[in-house]
């Protein structure tokens, strides 16, 4: 139910999104990641975002890891995640394009330079006598 459209990234491709509310995204993972991948991603990222140098980022990653490290909490977390769209299957039949110049288009173009393209005609207003 929670499969991502793309395959999970390999370790060097990990791109943590520290602003995301999705713990998988925080660890740079897809929703298909298993326990081993989660653990590996966390410990890889901890080297970059250590508690000493990047305390805020570390805190965020730690919280994400806590949500995913145990089977039961992971299941609850999975249940609270928005489901990504399935990969799009391209349309079998494309729609038609009408690309030849139509006489109506030419007339519409010519009308642009006539009074047909004018919205108001204050010069045509006449006074009334009552």
């Amino acid at each position: 139910m929670s499969s991502e459209p793309t395959t999970p990234p390999t370790e060097p491709e990990l791109k943590p999104d520290l602003h995301s509310q999705d713990p998988y995204a925080v660890l740079g993972l897809t929703h298909e990641a298993n326990e081993r991948q989660i653990k590996r991603a966390y410990f890889t990222l901890v080297r970059t975002y250590s508690p000493e140098t990047e305390p805020a980022a570390f805190k965020k990653m730690r919280a994400a890891y806590e949500q995913l490290r145990h089977t039961d909490t992971k299941k609850e977390t999975d249940l609270s995640l928005f489901q990504p769209p399935l990969p799009w299957t391209p349309r079998k039949r494309l729609g038609r394009l009408y690309l030849s110049l139509q006489p109506d288009d030419l007339l519409d173009y010519l009308a642009l330079s006539s009074e047909l393209n004018q919205a108001d005609f204050p010069k045509d207003y006449r006074p009334i006598q009552l």
């Binding site: 799009w88 494309l94 394009l97 288009d105 173009y109």
Partner: peptide, 27 residues
């Protein structure tokens, strides 16, 4: 610029679909 060609809405929609599909293919 004020032109309202008859086929434009349909063409614009179809071309946008094709571009959207291409972008989806690219992720």
């Amino acid at each position: 610029r004020g032109l309202r060609p008859q086929n434009l809405p349909a063409n614009l929609s179809e071309v946008s679909c094709r571009l959207a599909e291409a972008r989806l293919q690219q992720g």
